[in-house]
């Protein structure tokens, strides 16, 4: 398992995102080459910064990455009180209904477009957003 811990501050979203994207590429996750993959990870870390007790001086975010039994898993662990992940469909947007267009809330739908498994888990006494790609989404071991 590869890990990185950073202070829970907005300016650490970019380095934490870069760490996870590089780790995914090192594990040869096919979707890691897509632009939306990086956006999805950035959204997950941003969520942790927003809701992970940023007000506490020593609050941190820990990123974990592992490839186990063919499944690729990331955990973004924060000091917040957890939340419920709901299935979030993309808003049905059109120019005819701009007044109904949400100005926020796109983060979770973006994450769901990349990761079929999105859930909140506990890691010790902390909460984590876990994003996973099952083994079926990855090339077989040893494949080039």
């Amino acid at each position: 398992m590869t890990t990185l811990t950073v202070p829970n501050r907005i300016e650490f979203v970019r380095p934490a995102t870069a760490f996870l994207v590089q780790a995914a590429r090192a594990f040869r996750v096919p979707r890691a080459a897509e632009p939306v993959f990086e956006v999805a990870i950035s959204e997950a870390i941003t969520n942790a910064v927003k809701h992970g007790s940023r007000a506490e001086a020593n609050s941190t975010i820990t990123c974990e990455v592992e490839l186990e039994q063919g499944a690729f898993t990331m955990r973004i662990i924060d000091d917040g009180s957890g939340f419920t992940v709901r299935e979030s469909a993309l808003p049905d947007v059109s120019r005819e209904h701009i007044e109904a267009l949400p100005a926020s809330g796109y983060g979770l739908p973006i994450i769901h477009t990349v990761f079929p498994i999105v859930r909140v888990v506990t890691v010790g006494d902390r909460f984590a957003l876990e994003l996973a790609l099952p083994a079926t989404a990855l090339p077989p071991a040893g494949a080039e």
Binding site: P35, E38, V39, S42, I98, L101, A103, Y106, G107, I110
Partner: peptide
Amino acid sequence: SFIDSSGLGALVSALKTLKR
């Protein structure tokens, strides 16, 4: 070369303000 939901939200906010 990179935009997230916050950046998109800024564009949407501006558009909605104009349409209002």
